[in-house]
């Protein structure tokens, strides 16, 4: 039930972000969700794409440093405290969220949020036990 995320090391120099996204675009890779974490010198661009292996390959060919990480896509009810309730369950189970970011697309009445946990397997188990819906990779890549 994990989703694969691609991360790219991006130096803080003009044009690098454009270059990375162009490489993906030229290869016909579609970006489904993204987040950019940045510092003064560099950033890490995290992406959910429709074609993981192709994306990693073309980026490596263009000398980008790329890594793959397992993340979890969670359906979050689109109402006040929808996210807060889920986070409380995870906190109670002692699971730490490293970072999260949202999908633009909705799934029915729900939002989709990508979570990076310190303990992915523990998080998946907790979410399932609590009846919170998580999405398999295939459905996320083509959402």
């Amino acid at each position: 039930m994990k989703v694969q995320q691609i991360s790219i090391f991006i130096e803080n120099i003009p044009g690098r972000l454009a270059e990375a996204t162009k490489v993906l675009g030229d290869a016909g890779v579609n970006i489904r969700a993204l987040s950019l974490a940045d510092t003064s010198d560099f950033g890490v661009l995290r992406l959910i794409v429709d074609k993981n292996d192709l994306a990693k390959q073309v980026l490596a060919e263009h000398d980008f440093t790329v890594s793959k990480t397992d993340v979890v896509a969670v359906e979050v009810p689109d109402r006040p405290a929808g996210l807060a309730d889920i986070l409380q369950e995870l906190d109670a189970a002692g699971i730490t969220v490293e970072y999260l970011y949202a999908f633009v697309e909705r799934l029915g009445d729900n939002a989709v949020i990508i979570f990076r946990f310190d303990n992915v397997d523990g998080a998946v188990k907790t979410l399932r036990d609590k009846g919170i819906k998580i999405l398999p990779g295939e459905s996320v890549y083509n959402l």
Binding site: S7, T39, V44, T65, V66
Partner: peptide, 18 residues
């Protein structure tokens, strides 16, 4: 240079390395 051996998805390990 940052290579795959020292890069993951997180910022902190890179900052720690520097």
């Amino acid at each position: 240079e940052v290579n795959e051996g020292i890069f993951s998805d997180a910022i902190k390990p890179l900052q720690d390395l520097a």
